[in-house]
Each structure stands twice: as structure tokens, then as C-alpha cells.
Design a protein around this nucleic acid. Sequence first.
DNA 1: TGTTAGCACTCAAAGCACACGAGTGCTAAA
DNA 2: TTTAGCACTCGTGTGCTTTGAGTGCTAACA
Lengths: 342, 342
Amino acid sequence: MDSRKLKILQAVVDEYIVTGEPVGSKTVMKKVSASSATIRNEMAELEKQGYLEQPHTSAGRIPTYNGYRLYVDTLMERDPLSDEEKLMLNSMLDENAATEEELAGSASLALSQLTKCASVVASSTPKFSLIAKVEVIPTGKRMYIILMITSNGRIKNKTCRLEFDLTNEQLEFFDKYLDENLKGIPLDEVSEEMFDNIRTAMGAYMMSLTPLLSELFSLAKEMSAKDIMLRGEKNLLTCKDFDQAEIIDFLDNRREIAKFFDDSFSGLQISFSPENDGFAIRNSSIITAPFKKSGRTAGTLGLIGPMRIDYAKFIPYLEYFSQRITDLLSEQDYDEDEDNKE
Amino acid sequence: MDSRKLKILQAVVDEYIVTGEPVGSKTVMKKVSASSATIRNEMAELEKQGYLEQPHTSAGRIPTYNGYRLYVDTLMERDPLSDEEKLMLNSMLDENAATEEELAGSASLALSQLTKCASVVASSTPKFSLIAKVEVIPTGKRMYIILMITSNGRIKNKTCRLEFDLTNEQLEFFDKYLDENLKGIPLDEVSEEMFDNIRTAMGAYMMSLTPLLSELFSLAKEMSAKDIMLRGEKNLLTCKDFDQAEIIDFLDNRREIAKFFDDSFSGLQISFSPENDGFAIRNSSIITAPFKKSGRTAGTLGLIGPMRIDYAKFIPYLEYFSQRITDLLSEQDYDEDEDNKE
DNA sequence: TGTTAGCACTCAAAGCACACGAGTGCTAAA
DNA sequence: TTTAGCACTCGTGTGCTTTGAGTGCTAACA
């Protein structure tokens, strides 16, 4: 592939990203030293090769997704972050956040504001988390709250109403049993059978405790389910590159989005909707960057927007945030190690 | 006001609600026995009086908000619920919901699906709820979860990270102190001063416990803050009577919505956007119906949609749900009373 | 052989004229 | 007071033309 042709492709994508209008040969001429005729010839070839397309015969060219692919993989020059930008990004990150989720959440919010796209945080922690505490708290007539805390500090609760009040004895037995038998179990190993076993182990208490138990089971399931955090969804709604109805469908389908982010990526990844077999919104691109803790991937920070997006600017943002999160999380690690030495 | 004129107004609103198109004199003729000329004269007067308007000279009439006001207040005939409809509504209500919120939430979801509008639940419970339990749970190096449960079974938690780990002694002291001094306090009486007092009462422990304390304070504030539950927001987005951007702004502003629902209404209320001084979306109407528990208002079920909405059908839905919720909540009361007699 | 100037061609978008028709207000007769 | 009739209004839809940005192709040029 001719270097001039690459330059032309680059110029077209660069320009199209800014204007959103099909790019003609004259416009490209400003950036590539060749006559418009030459550029036209080259563009015709780029079209044959599948990197550009024409909305209609007498219009300029716009990049195809193959064009974008080539652009982001080899042509694009990233805008390095200025010191002011770094300062700004830092100020938007809540470095004092108590939890990993909050930290990443603040990055996600910042990203969505800066890019006018939607931003996602997907934590991969559930896989490694153990049940740390289970508690049943009576809160009123026949009302009980079940509380579950995991080893990494995530907490969730469920309220349930029983047919009869439990005696103190029953409650104590249940609490003790759960403490002895569930603590330390990895969340994703919780299974139906396991709970069947517990149920039989309840003996005489079985009848009265079964409803609590099944709520507890579904609570565990909910906690082990991969979930994501979405910020700036509304930015997508006002994006004219997208079809309204499609976005609403997409946003309704958190499960699918979570599944997409489940494949943990090793580094920065850019994927375009045609590559995500029907999952994503048409004309969308998803950029993801993982962040790490203790050397292993702790989650993924993602950006969902149109294909026509300022990659050169936004990718550094994303990378900076994911790096910063990784640093902050490992600082915590360091603290902990230091403590251990005492 | 002439009875024929009222009939004409009613016919116009009825028709416009169905078709969404300006209604002409010929169409009205089908419902009112008078010639089109007479109807035109009357409509011209209704326009002068501010009940109808014309999008342009040669178009039919559409109701103004004054027209809608008159319609819902005196003209409209509600469609009574058929037995099948009642059955359907019942099946959509989660009567086994453990909490009031879940129960009302299921009604809200059902409403939003049936009406293609957004639906709101606003609980007025926070006002009457007391702090029932406060617990500090260590979950890792310097990580603590603060848990707060109210007398009516609402639960919320906050994670916070401290500079130093607390000793068991400190933790026990804190837990005991909180249990003795916060239990039974009404949530809305929690004040800055109160926490200042607690802080001084901490004595030697003050330094280490202050961060936890301030998190606890903000947790209490969050819990006493009025919040609402919104369902079917996306229905508004696809409603062509609304301006996209305005809806997005509106939905972003939960605080405002919550405030609106804070004025507890005594019965069914219908309000139109011009009456809500700039708060609501243009051309929107908000219908609210309170539900009760133990004789006093426990919350409000609301419907947010365009002014052009099938009032005759949807108001009975809303009323049925709020009545049903009231019944279910008082059944619980009854149970409790019965228990108390034992 | 690659590049460029020039030219004919294409086609979406914008503008314009026109007809249509739904609906009106007004007038005059019943 | 009601109604039939009529002239008038105005948004909508249709077809036509113009405009201009942009193209592909060809022939001349370096």
C-alpha cells in the first residue's frame, strides 16, 4: 500500500471526524501535496479496496469501517496529553474514593463528560470474591433483611417477608450455620445443589427457614452476576450518527453489554460495530482499556460512542485514566504490604 | 357556559386524544347534533374563551391546557374497569413484594407498560422513620462499611476508607455508643449539631472516629432525603409530543421531580405543565394518586406523560393501583394488630 | 509512466410554481 | 338561532428547474 494513499486515507478520516461531512478531493488537497485529480484517482482505488465509500455518486468519500480500522491501527497520531490536560483529568478523578467501584466510576463519569459518549466500567472482581459475611436482621413483623458482604467489600441486601416470625433460637441457629458454612465460599461456586444440601442440614428448622434460604440463594446469584456501571447514556441519545430506537434497545439490554465486557481484554482495544456481530449499535465503536490491581486485571474502563469520534484525543484520556486507576490501586497494595511488614 | 359548547369541547378533546390531529367541525358533527357551521361558530367562541386553539388558520382545533383542565375536571367520563382489566392489573402487581417500595414499584412498572408513559413512586415514609440500627463492619485493610437500618426496614450502606485501622476496642466503643445514642432518633432530626455533640463525646477516640462519623452523617442525610422511583422513562423519549432535549434535562433532574412529589396530595390530582411553573416538560401532564398505610399517606403513585393522554382509561388504572396498594398495606396492619392481641 | 488540467457528467438539495383539500369565517336565507 | 353556501386561507404534496459540490475520464505534459 502506497504511502500517499495512506496519507489520503488519513486525511479523509481526520477531516471526516471533525466535520461529519463526506470529504472531497479538494479538501484533501490541503493536506496532501498532489492535485485533486491524482487524489481522485487514489480515492477511487481506496474505495475499490474497501477503505472508503461514497454516500452517492457526486459526493465526497467517507471511511468504511475497514478504513477506520486501518486508521486506528496504523495511521492515527495520538494527541499527547498536555500537562494542563493531565491536571484536569486528575481533578476529575476521585482519588479518595473508598472503593474500586467508586474510583473507576468517577473516571467513567469524567470520560463521558469529556467525550460526550457513554462510558462503562466493568469489574472483573466478582470472579475472585468470597463470601465474607452473611447476616439475617429482623426489622419488623415477619420482615427480615438478609445481608451479604464479600471479601472485597461489596455489600448487598434483600428484604423478605415470611409467613411466620422466627424465634430467637431459629435465628441464632441460622446465623451460626450460615457463618460456619458459607464464609469463605467463592461466590461463583454457589450452586443450587449446595443450597439443597444446606436445606436438608437444617433439619427441624427446614420448613421455617426455606424461604429465607431461597432468598439468600438468589442474593448470592445476584452478587456473582457480572454487572456494569454506565455513565453518560444520554449522550448517546443526542448523537445523530445513531438510530434513536436502536440506542434505547441497546441501553435496555444491560445483560448483553455486561457480557460483551466480560471477555477481559489484555490491553487497549478498539472494536467497531460490524465486528461485534449484531450486538452493538450500528455505526458505533467501543474502546476499552483494562485496569489492574495486584498485577491482574481488576476491571475494564470503556467508551461507547459513534465510529466518528476523536480517537486521537480520547484514547489518551482513556489510557491515562486506566493507568491512573491501576497506579492508585497498587498504591493501596503497597500500603498493605508495608503494613504486613510491621 | 352553554351545554352544547361543552359537548363540542368534549368531542374535540376525545377525538384529539385518539388521533393527535387537529379536529375539524365535520368530525365533531358526528358526535354533536348540529350543523358544521354552528359547530364552527361555537368553536370560534371556545377559542376566544381560551379552551381551544388553531395550529394555523385552515386547520382544525386542538385543546389548550385550559381545555384539558375543563375536560378532566368536569367533562370526562371515566371508563370503568372491566373484570378482565382488574384481573390483569392484579396480575401485574407483585402482591408478595417484601417491602412497600417493591409493591409500589411493581405497580409503577405496570403503569408505565400499560400507558406508555413514565411512572413514579414517591414514598413519604422517610419523614416518619427512625434509626433502628447502625453498624460498622470492617471489611479489609482500613476499609469499613457503615450500615444503617430504619424502623420501617429501609437499609443503606456506605463504604469508607480510613487512614489508619481501628482497634477492636475503638470499634466496640463506637458501635456501642452509636447503638445507645442513635437508635430511635427520627431520621429527619439528624443534624450537624447533633453530630458535633457526638464528636465531642467521643473524647480520646475523636481523632480516629471523626471520618467514620462524617460518613455516617452523610449516610443519614442520604437516607432521609426524599427519593423517587422512576419507571418507563424511555417511553417519554419516544413520545413525539415532547422535545427530546427537554426530556433528557427533565430526567437528569431527579431532585426536582422528587421535590414536586413532596407536596403530598390528598387525593387524585392532575396537573399540567403550565401550572407547574417551568418545572415539567412542555405539554406534559402529571397525574398522581396517593396510597395510604395505617390511615396516613404512605406515598404517591404518579404518571408522567403528554397532555394528550387517555385520561378516561388511565386514571382508573392509577386509582385502582393506589387503592389496591392501600388495601394490601392495611392487610399487613391488620395482621400486626391481630398479632398484638395474642 | 505517473501526474495534472480540463471537461462532461451525476445527483442531492434547495427553490419554485402549482394544485389539492381540509377547514375556516362570513353572509344571507330559513 | 340555525344553517347552507361560498370565498378564502394555508399546509401539504408534486413535479420541475437550478445550483453546486464532487466525480470519472481523457488528453496533454514532465
